[in-house]
C-alpha cells in the first residue's frame, strides 16, 4: 500500500438544526487519512454519522468547519459548486445502498451514463461499459433493465457504473444493506478486488461482518471516531 495520502480530513465538524432549537452535532472533530488502494470501513450504528462523513468526503455536502484535502493540494471544502462537480466527475465514484440505477436505462446504459457528457467516442464508451459489466460477472444481463435484475445484479451494475471513470476513490454507503449474506459477500469480494487494483474504497456500514474485508476500520459513535 502506498504511503501517499489520497484524501485527508482534518477536524471535520458538521452540525445542523433540527426544528427551531435543537442543534444536532452530526460530526465532531473527525480526522482521518485515506490512501490509494486502501479499503476503509466506516463502522457504527445508525445515526453515528457514517453517511454524513461519507457525504462530506465525497463533496456532496460541506462541513461546518474543518478541511478535506485531496492529493495534498486541493481543499474540497473551499471548492465552489462547479469545481466540486469536476471533482466528483473525475475523481470519485459512488455506490449507494439502494443502487440508484436509472429505471428506464438498461444495465449497459446505466454503466455508460457517467461518461455521456465526455468527449469520448460512443463505440469506445460501449466497449468500456461492456468490459466492466462482464468483469462484474453480468454476462448476458447487459441489456436487461433494473427491474429485470436481482438485487445483487443491480448492485454489481452500480459498482460498474462507479468504476467506469476509473476514479481514484469510491464511496459506498451500505453497499450490502439490501442484499442477502451470500450476495453481500460477493459484492464485497468484488470491491476488494477492485481496491487491490489501486482504487481506494470508503465503505459506510453497520454490518460487523464486513470488517473482515477492510484494511482499516474506523468506528464512529455519536459523530466521533473511537
Amino acid at each position: 500500500m502506498s504511503v501517499e495520502v489520497l484524501l485527508e480530513a482534518k477536524d471535520l465538524v458538521k452540525t445542523y438544526r433540527r426544528g427551531r432549537n435543537e442543534v444536532v452535532h452530526a460530526l465532531q472533530n473527525v480526522s482521518l487519512k485515506i490512501h490509494p488502494a486502501e479499503m476503509i470501513l466506516l463502522y457504527g450504528p445508525s445515526g453515528s454519522g457514517k453517511s454524513t462523513l461519507l457525504n462530506l468526503l465525497s463533496g456532496l455536502d460541506k462541513p461546518t468547519s474543518g478541511e478535506i484535502i485531496f492529493q495534498g493540494k486541493h481543499d474540497i471544502t473551499k471548492m465552489d459548486e462547479s469545481e466540486l462537480t469536476i471533482f466528483r466527475r473525475n475523481e470519485v465514484g459512488f455506490v449507494f445502498q439502494s443502487w440508484e440505477l436509472i429505471d428506464h436505462l438498461n444495465a449497459v446504459e446505466n454503466v455508460e451514463v457517467p461518461l455521456y457528457p465526455d468527449d469520448i467516442d460512443s463505440g469506445e464508451l460501449r466497449t468500456r461499459a461492456l468490459q466492466l459489466i462482464r468483469r462484474m460477472d453480468l454476462i448476458d444481463r447487459e441489456y436487461h433493465f433494473p427491474k429485470e435484475l436481482s438485487g445483487g445484479e443491480q448492485q454489481r451494475v452500480a459498482v460498474a457504473r462507479a468504476l467506469i471513470k476509473e476514479p481514484k476513490i469510491v464511496f459506498a454507503d451500505e453497499p450490502t444493506g439490501n442484499l442477502d449474506q451470500e450476495t453481500g459477500d460477493l459484492i464485497m469480494r468484488m470491491l476488494k478486488t477492485i481496491c487491490r487494483m489501486g482504487t481506494a474504497m470508503v465503505i459506510a456500514t453497520h454490518n460487523e461482518d464486513l470488517r473482515r474485508y477492510a484494511d482499516r476500520v474506523i468506528r464512529l459513535t455519536d459523530g466521533r471516531i473511537h
Binding site: 462537480t85 466528483r88 466527475r89 440508484e100 451514463v113 457517467p114 457528457p117 471513470k165
Partner: peptide, 16 residues
C-alpha cells in the same frame, strides 16, 4: 428528482 440526484452525484455539470 432521483435521476437528477444520481446525475449530480456522478458529476454531471448543470449544463448537462
Amino acid at each position: 428528482q432521483r435521476e437528477i440526484a444520481i446525475l449530480k452525484a456522478m458529476g454531471y455539470a448543470k449544463s448537462s
